[in-house]
Design a protein around this nucleic acid. Structure first.
Lengths: 335, 335
DNA sequence: TTGAAAGCGATACCAG
DNA sequence: CTGGTATCGCTTTCAA
């Protein structure tokens, strides 16, 4: 049987309370007592039962991280940073995948109340404003991305400005037929909406008339569906001068299709993505993209979350993380 | 304040035990009683406290998944499948990263005893046999990969046979100078050892004398370090006829370096990886690789783990998952 | 500074 | 089929 505080207390000749004091280190304990207790813990190979502690404290030491799909490089890199930052501060991370199912996002907010999670970092895809409202009385939630709501704390990158800047960068050498890949008309994600808006705003600034034929739809934001979407689109459209993909994963799929068709990048078409994932840096050619500090996103999210745990009533806080346009070989002549 | 079983019981006019029976559904409950209880739960917006349940049951409903680095595509895809499979069966998944630090793997086995985790799926990099031994009396552990030990259950792919087959496939068109990338001499991982052994065994079968100059070292198995390793190696070595990278991530880094140097793939050099990650399928050119069913790895690991929870004393079980050589454009002439 | 006892919320045992 | 009651392991009043 596993040792408990009682066992440790008995062996050390003290009370359970004292053992607890030694562990938590907030109430002062005399050096000899502390030593006895620590020795007893060693001898009994004592490990505290976190379920019991969680029950008593009302806190579990675990935060939830909910992402659409852990397998996409962007989510994976984000999760990596959240896990690292959280561990540094003594938190464990429970991973949830929401897929493309709005219901799952709802469910999660409920599950978060099961007290196995002290807070939730949620990267929503299709979260409606209503879903977040349910969350008011629940454990703290920090949203990642550009969800328009005014209740939960939030960390985001200005996707619209970034998309605008990227479009402008693609247009700079005089390119005018600029297509975008990633429009998801069926259930538009707020991210898609913002990036499309940035693209359109750039066209307007450039005096380029918007052309619906240059909006390439792609419901799932994976390399695979992006490749399929672009491939079939190219069957009925001429090659544009530039292609702005709403994520790097989609851009990698696009590069593959273009290569297969013998369309040269960047000579025949410039390609850009968004997120600056590792594989984009090593793509052939290396991918031009919008870069931002994912570790900062992770650490800010965690900061907001832990702050919120101690002060549930302060007003909503929003953190904006900067970005930069990184031009690589997929949009600039080989150097 | 949150509602408890007591509140629900009071409102439904029954005892707490009955509420519990309704929830767990194992003991029969009369229809009217069940209805009253369910209504009360609805009205009070009742959500069970999992910490309390965990304390009482000795089980938390959470499994741990420990990976070296969540940001690598292979780990990410694996995690994705584990999370999905686990959720289907009602488990939550806590993610831990071990990095390259053996100490972290040790720590984990201890942390798993904190009762917040009912079992652990561990993909070790450098776990020594001793580390697993500590785990005997602990919660169930399932190891992923080719760790040579005889205590914990394990799911693995025959890396050595796969590496041999891949080397033979690369050699088939008469290629003889076949280099490998991924030797990590400093702290050899068991995976590296197996794949290197497979490579050597293939050379022997082919009657090719092993050449240490063709063993390219690379301590970290990322695109980035692979690219750096290959780049500097090429400074002092002629281009080999083929390059077998121990993971797809490394192969992607290699493709990038070769492209930058104007070395054509597969015309000048054939390239292959291992793992069949999504980005490899869309690489330029698409990557030849060793493929295996990651979802099967995940589901088998979970099955072994849950079996072990109910029967801690049965003998070690080992599941081998098959593989196949997938030849794509990086090793075969364009079709 | 330390000890004794209560209680967090859910479940299992044993009656009825 | 249902109700009381003890209990899981830890922390936290309140006293000493």
């Amino acid at each position: 049987m596993r040792a408990t505080v009682k066992d440790v207390a008995r062996r050390a000749g003290v009370s359970p309370k004292t053992v607890s004091n030694v562990m938590n280190g907030v109430v002062p304990v005399s050096a000899p007592t502390r030593f006895k207790v620590e020795q007893a813990m060693q001898e009994l190979d004592y490990v505290p039962n976190l379920s019991a502690r969680g029950l008593r404290n009302g806190r579990s030491g675990v935060i939830g991280l909910a992402l659409p799909d852990l397998a996409t490089p962007f989510s994976a890199e984000l999760a990596h940073h959240v896990v690292e930052v959280a561990h540094e501060q003594g938190w464990s991370v429970q991973i949830e995948e929401t897929g493309l199912d709005p219901q799952r996002e709802q469910d999660l907010m409920t599950r978060a109340r099961s007290n196995l999670i002290d807070g939730l970092i949620l990267n929503p895809v299709v979260l409606q404003e209503s879903a977040v409202k349910v969350g008011v009385s629940l454990p703290p939630v920090v949203l990642l991305g550009e969800v328009t709501q005014h209740i939960a704390d939030r960390v985001f990158v200005d996707s619209m400005a970034a998309a605008r800047d990227m479009t402008l960068a693609l247009a700079k050498p005089g390119r005018r037929r600029i297509a975008v890949l990633g429009i998801n008309a069926a259930r538009p994600s707020s991210t898609a909406i913002h990036r499309a808006a940035g693209y359109e705003s750039a066209l307007e600034a450039l005096g380029i008339a918007p052309d619906d034929d240059l909006l390439i739809r792609c419901e799932k934001w994976t390399s695979e569906s992006a490749a399929a979407a672009l491939d079939s689109w190219l069957d009925s459209h001429p090659v544009p001068e530039a292609l702005f993909c709403f994520t790097d994963s989609m851009a990698l799929g696009a590069l593959n299709v273009l290569w297969k068709r013998g369309i040269r990048v960047p000579d025949d078409i410039a390609v850009a993505g968004f997120d600056d994932v590792a594989d984009g840096r090593f793509a052939v050619p290396p991918l031009t993209t919008v870069s931002f500090d994912r570790r900062l996103v992770a650490s800010e999210a965690l900061r907001l979350l832990t702050d919120r745990m101690t002060d549930r009533d302060s007003s909503q806080r929003v953190v904006q993380v900067g970005y930069s346009i990184v031009e690589r070989g997929s949009s600039t002549p080989r150097g």
